[in-house]
Each structure stands twice: as structure tokens, then as C-alpha cells.
Design a binder for these strands. Structure first.
Lengths: 122, 122
DNA sequence: CTCATTGTTCTAGCATGATGCGAACAATGC
DNA sequence: GCATTGTTCGCATCATGCTAGAACAATGAG
């Protein structure tokens, strides 16, 4: 099965679903244009609620990895390379949190790393 | 102030407290033998509950960074180098989660990276 | 157009975790 | 002895994740 979850894990089910797709995408198991199984279908197979699956799909949509449209379903839009970006960002953010770096400080650091002006604050 | 917290952040307060101390430790602001402010004192200053501060301290104790004893308070036991380890582990775990790597798989990867035998599963 | 499929939105309820609050207890160091 | 400090109870409150059911709207095939 493409998407797998562990209901016993502390990780929210929706995030597990998103992570499954992200991983399949990064490993080339999914390509741009491919269609994910419908939320209702996936919910039945995983024995979770449809809303939970949709929530996972919405995460991927917000990350720009898939496209969601009623009647057509969830379509992959990102390349494997593109799929790794959200995960890298996740690393960065979690690392900053663990180090006690505030969100504002992190943003400032990223901005300066991008070569732009350091315009933190108002 | 040594410990700072943002009650508006999504991050749990106890984890923010632990992150603050971890960062101070890693940056050399705290050295082995130093004593953290008492939980009651910190709670008053941060305007949070004492239990929340103690919960943060317990996290640090579980990570082996400080020593907790009634009547004596919270004493730093870790070197700055040692203090960075929990945060590095946190990066790794969060990265694995974001990539859809299961905990068992991650453990296996770490084991093999350490040169030991790959004895995943039962 | 007709219709099944699919995502979207809404409301509601339940379980869990984080936090707060109060109190009593035990260990430490003066 | 005594003040200080962490430890351990129990309980209340609030936010979040998940489930549940229903109606709605967009899409694509016939």
C-alpha cells in the first residue's frame, strides 16, 4: 500500500499520511501527474476517517506537492527534488526550536543567508 | 533573563523552557556546577505554573544535562558539547518523521551507522 | 445533460495532552 | 530546627486530533 499509518504512534495520523506520500514522492514511486487514491478509498483501507486523510492531503497541498480538486482528486504536481524541500525546511525549523532560536531570529538568518537585506522586526 | 518563553507559541511551554536552558548551556552561558533558578522563582518570573517549569527541568534531567534534588535545586552536570547532543538527536528524529521514515527504520540506520549489526525487528 | 465520483464545508462529540491550581510530602543545607 | 526545593497527589480547564454524519460543489465520463 502506498500510504501507511500507525495509529499507536504519537505522530498525528494526518501528518503520517502526508509523510508517506512525501517519502514515496522523494523516492520516485510517484511522479508528476500521478493521482493519489481517493480520500474515501484510503480512509476505508487505513480504517481511519475520511477527514483525517483529507487533512493529510491538505498539508501536501499547502506544501505545493499536490493539487486538489473536487471530482478529479489529488494529483501530484511536484518533482522528487521539489518534494524534499518541505522536509528540509522541517529539519531547519525543528533544529532552530531545539536550539532555542526564535522564529523571528530564524527568519532573519534565512533572509541573510539568501543574500537579501536583514529586515527583521517591524 | 536566562529562561524565556512565548505563551503564544504553539511549542509547549515546558519544551520552550528546556530549549532555553539547552541553548544557554550550548553557548557556554551555563557551566557544570551552576545552579538553575528554582522552579518556584522561575515560575513567578515567567508567569507560568511551577509544575510547568519542573516539567521542563525533568526533560533536561532525562536528557542527562542537569541533576535535580530536593533542597538543592537544579544543578548543571553537562558540558556545552554534551548539551548539543539532545538537540542533534531532535533534528534527526524530526527529519526522519518528515521523510516518512519509521522509528524502527531510523534505529536500524543509526545502528548501522555506528558500525554495529543491523538487528531490526524482533 | 445526467450521473457517479471526489474534494469542500459545516456541525457536533469524544479522547487525550498541556497547563494551571492547591496541597502535602521528603530531601537538602544552613 | 527550619527555610528552601524538588516530588507527588488529585482535579479543573482548554486546545487539539480524530471521528461522525450530512449537505454542497466541481469534475469528468457516458
Amino acid at each position: 500500500m502506498l500510504i501507511r499509518v500507525d495509529s499507536a504512534a504519537a505522530r498525528p495520523l494526518a501528518e503520517q499520511i502526508a509523510a508517506s506520500v512525501r517519502r514515496a514522492l522523494a523516492e520516485g514511486e510517484l511522479a508528476p501527474g500521478d493521482r493519489l487514491p481517493s480520500a474515501r478509498e484510503t480512509a476505508r483501507l487505513l480504517e481511519v476517517n475520511m477527514h483525517t486523510v483529507l487533512r493529510g492531503y491538505q498539508i501536501l497541498k499547502a506544501e505545493g506537492l499536490i493539487d486538489l480538486r473536487p471530482g478529479r482528486g489529488a494529483v501530484v504536481t511536484a518533482t522528487p527534488e521539489r518534494a524534499r524541500i518541505p522536509e528540509l525546511i522541517d529539519h531547519l525549523v525543528e533544529g532552530a526550536r531545539g536550539a532555542g532560536v526564535t522564529d523571528a531570529e530564524l527568519l532573519s538568518l534565512v533572509r541573510s543567508a539568501l543574500g537579501g537585506p536583514d529586515q527583521a522586526g517591524s
